[in-house]
Simulated assay, not measured.
Amino acid sequence: MPRKGANVHRELSSSAEHQRPERYRPYGQGALSKSHDAYLSRELVHKAVASEVLLSKASRVGEDRFHLTARLASGNSLFASATSGTGDLLFFAEAVRQAGSSVSHLFYDVPLDRVFILDSMNLEMCTEGLPCPARSDGAVEVELRCSFRDAGTNRRRFAKTYRTDLIQAGRRWGSATVGFTTMSRATFDRLRQRSSPAPAAVAGTSRSRLPPSRVGRHASRDVLLGNPQGGAGNEWELLLDREHPFYFDHPIDHIPGMALLEAMRQAVQAHGGVFECLVPRSMDVEFGSFAELDQAVSLEVSPLQDAPRRLRVTARQGERFVASAAVQVTEEGVESVLTPCEAA
């Protein structure tokens, strides 16, 4: 989430400073309806550390249509799957999330102090996955082609749904559809006070983490799952590291949506006793409620009936529904039911 008073592009500071927060300029009338060819500032993508910014070259190409560039760097193990050696859904999900916030701030004049809430996220990558850089110091640039449409009528809550196609080397490697809502900090704080207890110590830190290779990661700190005491073979416990540079690079009063998404992806890959070498390639995610930092989160994986290689992951805190995802998987070395890459 952005911090008030942070340094951003000069035009953005000027635009936000003189803007009525409940109003948004229509297409074509904002001060920022132009291209941006340098790396976007961290405030625009709601990150505190500049190295976590994935996007550059944001431009408007038509009414409610935008092109952005993202970089997948070889040195970032979080975005490289140890199992397949390809860029995975988490990189795509984070790049798409950053695209939504940056486009909203730059081209729809949404103030920097607005809170963004993910409602849903549908992701699909082609069977090959996104290729990672071959050199240890290299990077792969991908293009994000986004189209936005209104998702609500409340002018105090800027809400959009947007479709994103991921293009690299002239081929479409994936697509995503995201729904989000924004609200003022004051409105968000009132919502949290009514519905949530005050955050305390992070739950689920005492269990041992699964081996990184079990969930397709290189480093132990990127593993978000442990075995719950007395749990069944299809149940996992979310483990959080409040010092993690990606998930907790800035203060937040609930478990981030990207952490829940990645935990569900890891749960599917850890569930590889059903299929060998599971690689999630498609996720249809619904967020139901805020996940509290001081309550344990359980994740349960179950097969979807009459759907080959499709699994359902459900995240709960006690009896309360937090999020769920329908996940399509592929097996390494096995013919996939997903779509191969196609020409853009």
Score class of each variant (00 low, 15 high):
K4H: 09
N7V: 10
E11L: 11
S13V: 10
P21M: 01
E22T: 14
R23D: 12
G28A: 03
A31D: 14
L32D: 14
K34D: 11
R42F: 01
L44I: 04
H46V: 04
A50D: 14
K57E: 15
E63M: 07
E63A: 10
L72I: 12
G75P: 14
N76L: 05
S77Q: 14
L78G: 07
S84D: 15
G85V: 11
T86H: 08
L89N: 06
F92H: 13
F92P: 15
A93S: 15
A93K: 03
A93I: 07
S102I: 07
V110P: 15
R114Y: 12
S120D: 14
E124S: 15
M125Y: 01
P133K: 01
P133E: 02
R135S: 12
G138N: 04
E143W: 00
R145W: 01
Y162C: 03
A169Q: 12
G170I: 05
R171M: 10
A176E: 05
F180C: 15
F180Q: 09
R194W: 08
V202F: 12
G204M: 07
G204F: 04
R207E: 12
P212E: 00
V215N: 08
R217L: 05
H218N: 07
Q229C: 07
A232K: 09
L238Q: 04
L240H: 02
P245G: 02
P245F: 01
L260T: 06
L260P: 00
A267H: 08
V268M: 08
F275G: 04
E276G: 11
C277Y: 04
P280T: 12
M283H: 07
D284S: 11
D284P: 03
V285W: 05
G288R: 09
G288D: 11
D294R: 09
V297F: 02
E300G: 09
Q305Y: 00
A307C: 10
A307M: 06
R310Y: 02
A315S: 05
R316W: 02
G318H: 09
E342N: 03
